[in-house]
Design a protein around this nucleic acid. Sequence first.
DNA 1: CGAAAGAGGTCTCACGATGAGACTAAGATG
DNA 2: CATCTTAGTCTCATCGTGAGACCTCTTTCG
Lengths: 149, 149
Amino acid sequence: MGTRARAGNRLAAREALAQRVRGWAHLPFDPARCPVRSVLDQLGDKWTTLVVLVLTQGPHRFSAVQRAIPDISKRMLTQALRDLERDGLVARQVFPTTPPSVEYRLTPLGESLLEPLGALIAWAEVHMAGIVAARAGFARQRTARPAGA
Amino acid sequence: MGTRARAGNRLAAREALAQRVRGWAHLPFDPARCPVRSVLDQLGDKWTTLVVLVLTQGPHRFSAVQRAIPDISKRMLTQALRDLERDGLVARQVFPTTPPSVEYRLTPLGESLLEPLGALIAWAEVHMAGIVAARAGFARQRTARPAGA
DNA sequence: CGAAAGAGGTCTCACGATGAGACTAAGATG
DNA sequence: CATCTTAGTCTCATCGTGAGACCTCTTTCG
């Protein structure tokens, strides 16, 4: 695929999104029923996505996930896993050993999320430098301004 | 592109993500410095993404954005716009009229986000039905269980 | 025998973020 | 002179979040 074709794809993707958004205008505005909000709220849960990323590495037990994300509390981890289970993205399997052990793994639905999620993460890594630069510039503006004008 | 090739791409995308995650293992675990968290926290802000979606429709004034997202408060809208501006995704232009008017538009960086964001939204719309079904099943399980066992 | 550990949670409490809504400036309009 | 406009900011009550104690059951160690 040449540069020209790729640029075309990018434009097409943008226009497709814009049209999609335009299509929503007809719908009654009901935040609770909006799939996009549903999904983004979930991913924005600060932890859910991290958990999904850990599970890309294969099934994990509760404590293994916690080790992989040191700064999550048990409470939040439980909740993130429950939410993912509720939405059918993660499967929970209990082994009746003592002490009991529980294994979490991505379902096919959960795995299907990896594709768009990967795109987003790739974007984040590529553009991180630009964002950091923008932040620095913004901070400079803000600190320089108050005295002036 | 045939079905087979597309399936291959999907697998490749998943494996690529898994490898990317594996690569992070070497890094010192520093949540504050993680681009992925940075970006996802931002998008998960509940409002930021919605604002970006509104701006796909072209430049908007403050109040126009608010009309497009009725259930956002001024405070939160201001914050979302400021964050986006800070990160260089949105440009803010003030017209010194009275009363003043301010226009917000996506920057090229902001537009570059539309591609992966579009992928995520497409995923959300496609799989929403599955998620709703999973939720219903989960609720049934939970309500049925307490009496039993 | 008693103590501690280890898994997977739940519960409580304090704190920070969030939303509602009043308030501001500065001019145009009735 | 009162009122309307836009784009915010400010305060306060509420809500969600995170930290960490506590729980159950059994095995293992001293």
